[in-house]
Amino acid sequence: MRALHEKDDPGLSSRSKFFFIALLCSFLWYVVPGYLFTTLTNISWVCWIFSKSVTAQQIGSGMRGLGVGAFTLDWAAVASFLFSPLISPFFAIANVFVGYALIVYAVTPIAYWGLNVYNANRFPIFSSHLFTAQGQKYNISAIVDDHFELNVAEYEKQGRIHLSVFFALTYGFGFATVASTLTHVFCFYGRYYPSNYFAEMLNFLLY
């Protein structure tokens, strides 16, 4: 109501003027890296220097690798991983960042180069695609019939579906996170549940 009916101070900029200036600035900030010059979304000096090295591309690329040495001028790319600092509190962002750094910069390189988990070296280190055992893209449409049911014969012909090591680990950690919620509740609040349960049952029976 105040925005619609309260009069602006003549000595200050109007609310509508401030809004349109902020809108124009945010639009220009996004349209350049997001549409006109998409290279600004991911700038990697490691990939520029070692342009012919596959390992350097895996380490330095912010789009298909670990993003070491890469930076961005695209706000959407910044907020996509660590949430927007304008919305989320610092402790939440720091918590996400620590987990993200451990998975991306510690667990994934060890699993890929050190342990070769799930034959990880056959596939890209970071990719959302599905692969065959030989590292080729998996033909999903070939194993699904017209009724969107699994064609077992075609599936056995192509073989098992494989994921990149990053996605395989993050899916596993995601399921573990759900299970860890129950463990957390049991460890920190488990002693309160028996007494509270019987107290609630007693109140229900009496009242």
Rank of each mutant, 00 (worst) to 15 (best):
L4E: 13
P10K: 04
G11H: 09
G11T: 06
S14Q: 05
R15A: 09
R15G: 11
K17Y: 06
K17P: 00
F19E: 06
L23S: 05
F27M: 09
W29I: 15
P33G: 00
Y35K: 12
L36W: 14
L36K: 10
N42T: 08
V46Y: 00
C47H: 01
S53N: 07
V54S: 12
Q57F: 15
Q57C: 11
G60Q: 00
M63S: 15
F71N: 05
T72L: 08
L73W: 10
A76G: 14
S84C: 15
P85S: 11
P85R: 04
S88L: 07
P89G: 03
A92N: 07
A92L: 12
A94V: 07
N95R: 04
V98L: 08
G99S: 03
G99A: 03
G99I: 03
V107Y: 02
V107W: 01
P109Y: 04
Y112D: 01
L115V: 14
L115Y: 13
N119F: 11
N121Q: 09
N121G: 04
R122T: 05
R122H: 12
R122C: 08
F123M: 02
F123L: 05
I125H: 00
S127L: 05
H129C: 10
H129F: 11
G135W: 07
I140Y: 15
S141Y: 13
A142M: 11
D145I: 00
D146Y: 14
H147S: 09
F148D: 11
N151R: 10
A153P: 01
K157G: 03
H162Q: 09
L163A: 07
F166G: 02
F166K: 03
F173E: 02
G174Q: 08
A176E: 13
V178W: 09
L182K: 05
T183E: 14
T183I: 12
F186C: 10
G190S: 07
Y192K: 11
P194C: 03
S195H: 10
N196R: 09
N196Q: 11
F198V: 11
Y207L: 12
Y207I: 10
